[in-house]
Design a binder for these strands. Structure first.
Length: 357
DNA sequence: AGTATTTGACCATC
DNA sequence: GATGGTCAAATACT
């Protein structure tokens, strides 16, 4: 129950931030039509401030964000169904609609003792020749496979793994691994729950932050982009920017730093890297623009604060929501959102990204 | 009822 | 003996 509340908060904040950003875009288009090439020192639009987006479209999106935020406030999160799927849907879902999760909390006294709603996030790991076999890929933790199942409609079976220290230390972290249908070399890993075992703290000390990001609107585009050498340089530059921003953010919010435990033990030499947009982010589906900048904006926006964490505790969803909202709800305590003033790096970042591209 | 997830026993390897 | 994979069965969920 508490978990869902946190999820809702995150989603709400996400919507509000999106609305804010869209409003800035609109403002910029209305009053600063020539600012598209402005320097990074301004608070101007992100790369997605594309001149291709009409004011009407922006207004529509703003209204949509506001509407969704309001709906969330009213507790009807699960009833919203738009293309702009927010973080919650992929991040907190265990396959159960939010509304049903909420209902079940109250309707079923004897709720499931086995499947609990836990923090959940998905990573896409690309395998290259020479990497460890599926299921044993090092992400800094030791896992034990406890099951495998052919999933209906899926080409490849899904493997179920749990933390080796489940019994010894009561660590409830689990993960599911499944090869991508589009590219068998890509493994989709869904992590559930945080590591509470000693591995978590150990990893935090021993594994430096390192993540390799690729960008794309979707998987196929990500793959496509890899085949374009001229884009690689841009992407690498953007990666460096992201890292620097992440480090900045690390300093601001130590409790949820951005390095991934999954990457911590890996580097390029190991031929393993993570592709971000691990969270299904359908935000881009609303965009008519294929520009990478838009993806970057969306990706960093949703991914950065909550997705990765270096201490091995998984997505620090609860942490961030606690930090963001404190004991009170976001709605009741607007001032709590002030913490996101420090996340304005998104704007700076996107501007720089635009310049690079 | 069908599917997804988890459990627990059994076995293999080191 | 410890660790980890496989698999049938049980259980949760839709």
């Amino acid at each position: 129950m508490e978990e869902n509340m946190k999820c809702e908060k995150i989603g709400l904040i996400s919507e509000l931030m999106q609305g804010e950003e869209l409003t800035k875009k609109l403002y910029d288009q209305l009053f600063s039509p020539s600012s598209s090439s402005s320097s990074s020192s301004s608070s101007s639009p992100s790369p997605s401030t594309s001149s291709h987006v009409s004011n009407e479209v922006l207004i529509d999106k703003i209204l949509l964000s506001i509407e969704k935020a309001l709906t969330m406030v009213k507790g009807n999160v699960g009833q919203i169904k738009t293309n702009n799927v927010n973080i919650i849907d992929s991040y907190c879902s265990n396959g159960t609609p939010k509304s049903e999760i909420q209902d079940s909390k109250f309707k079923h006294k004897h709720v499931s003792k086995k499947r609990k709603t836990m923090p959940m996030w998905t990573e896409q790991v690309k395998l290259y020749l020479g990497t460890a076999p599926e299921g044993s890929m090092e992400d800094g933790y030791s896992w034990r496979k406890y099951g495998q199942k052919d999933i209906l409609g899926a080409k490849f079976p899904r493997g179920y793994y749990r933390c080796t220290h489940r019994n010894a230390q009561g660590c409830l972290a689990t993960k599911q691994m499944q090869k991508s249908e589009e590219d068998p070399m890509i493994c989709e890993i869904t992590y559930k729950g945080r590591h509470t075992c000693t591995q978590a703290s150990n990893l935090n000390k021993t594994h430096p932050s390192k993540i390799k990001l690729t960008f794309g609107k979707n998987k196929s585009q990500q793959l496509h982009q890899k085949n374009q050498p001229q884009d690689q340089e841009k992407i690498q530059s953007l990666q460096q920017i992201i890292f620097s921003k992440i480090e900045e953010f690390d300093n601001i919010f130590p409790p949820f730093t951005f390095s991934s435990q999954s990457i911590g033990s890996q580097n390029e030499d190991n031929n393993i890297f993570l592709e971000t947009n691990m969270i299904e982010n359908n935000f881009m589906e609303n965009e008519n623009n294929n520009n990478n900048n838009i993806f970057l904006e969306s990706n960093i926006f949703s991914l950065s604060p909550i997705h990765l964490e270096s201490n091995g505790l998984g997505p620090c969803e609860s942490d961030i929501s606690e930090i963001i909202s404190g004991p009170n709800s976001v709605v009741n305590s607007p001032i709590d959102l002030d913490i996101f003033d420090d996340i304005n790096f998104d704007m700076d970042f996107t501007i720089n990204a635009q310049e690079l591209c």
